[in-house]
């Protein structure tokens, strides 16, 4: 069944590929104001060099922000279709909104590959592959890690209340910590504090002052981890509070190096951008296909034990 579907897609693709003189693909992603997406963009651009060397092109389309997520994503899918691309690489964040548009795109013979989110939609979309990690599983890993290191009450900080991927990360932390016998306290900050370092730092400080039994914080973005580290520093609570975060940045890693932060959960966005772009193009151009599916790029936990190699990657903008 699955093979049949793939063959059908491939047949359609070959037809289009021979009809057009270049393979154009669109990569649809999140806002580049977000550090995570800059790393992913580097992956897309690096793969883009290979694509261009082989006569294709990559158009990187991104949502301006996360305020109107579902509709914005559908608009981008429609734009990619309007531009006549042969392949689309995209995360599935809002399946109810995105699926009809993606299925319509597939009807036109466009090959779809998924990354970052939406592994469970692979079959329905007849997608080429999936490159990413699972938010919930990563949350469980993070919650368990801090709890096993001795944190009894972990604060899980959500910077955009209502964003479903963030909610499932914290749900994972709750369950992971519970497994190891610890408690989790989920804090949903008002969305206007998103990307606001000072505001978030003060708000987290208030939480730490208000409840001195909190001995662990997990933030869901690298910048939020900077804010949390600042709050902990201000209170001189480095000995009391362990800090973990989703996603890496140079400041996260330098804190791990100097012992001010316990860990970072990496889903290796560089690979998500690079592999989805490169394999999609290679499939269109050369007919190749990775047999393993889905391809998991995380969670990989970075702590004091493996910090050296991670630091080298950050300096080059790939971690």
């Amino acid at each position: 069944m699955n093979i049949k579907k793939t063959l059908a897609t491939m047949a359609a693709t070959t037809f289009i590929a021979t009809g057009a003189w270049a393979q154009d693909i669109a990569v649809i992603g999140g806002s580049i104001n977000d550090g995570f997406w800059n790393i992913l963009k580097k992956g897309v651009e690096d793969a883009g060099l290979m694509v261009e060397a082989n006569g294709g092109s990559v158009n990187y389309l991104l949502v301006p922000n996360y305020d109107n997520f579902g509709p914005d994503l559908v608009t981008l899918i429609e734009q990619a279709v309007a531009q006549g691309v042969d392949g689309i690489a995209i995360p599935v964040w809002v399946p109810e909104s995105q699926m009809p548009a993606l299925l319509a795109a597939r009807e036109k013979g466009i090959v779809i590959t998924l990354y970052n989110a939406g592994a469970d939609k692979m079959e329905e979309l007849g997608a080429l592959n999936y490159f990413g990690s699972d938010e919930y599983v990563a949350g469980v890993a993070g919650g368990k890690y801090l709890a096993e290191k001795g944190a009894m009450k972990i604060l899980c900080h959500i910077q955009i209340p209502g964003a479903i991927n963030l909610e499932s990360r914290c749900q994972g932390v709750v369950d992971g910590a519970k497994e190891a016998g610890s408690e989790t306290y989920v804090v949903r900050m008002p969305a206007n504090l998103d990307q606001d370092m000072v505001g978030t730092s003060e708000a987290l400080k208030a939480e730490l002052i208000g409840d001195d039994s909190i001995d662990g914080i997990i933030t869901l973005a690298a910048w939020a981890s900077d804010a949390a580290a600042n709050a902990i520093e201000q209170l001189g609570a480095n000995d009391r509070v362990m800090l973990g975060t989703f996603d890496l940045s140079s400041s996260v890693l330098s804190r791990i190096e100097s012992g001010k932060q316990t860990m970072g959960i990496d889903q290796q966005p560089y690979y998500q951008g690079f592999l989805s772009t490169a394999t999609l193009f290679a499939h269109l151009k050369f007919g190749t296909k990775i047999v393993t599916e889905p391809v998991l790029t995380g969670p990989a936990i970075v702590d004091a034990s493996n910090i050296e190699s991670a630091l080298a990657g950050v300096a080059l903008g790939a971690r």
Binding site: D67, S97, I160, P161
Partner: peptide
């Protein structure tokens, strides 16, 4: 879009 989300639409 067959769905509704709660985040505030500041944009």
């Amino acid at each position: 879009f067959n769905s509704a989300q709660s985040p505030t639409n500041f944009t």
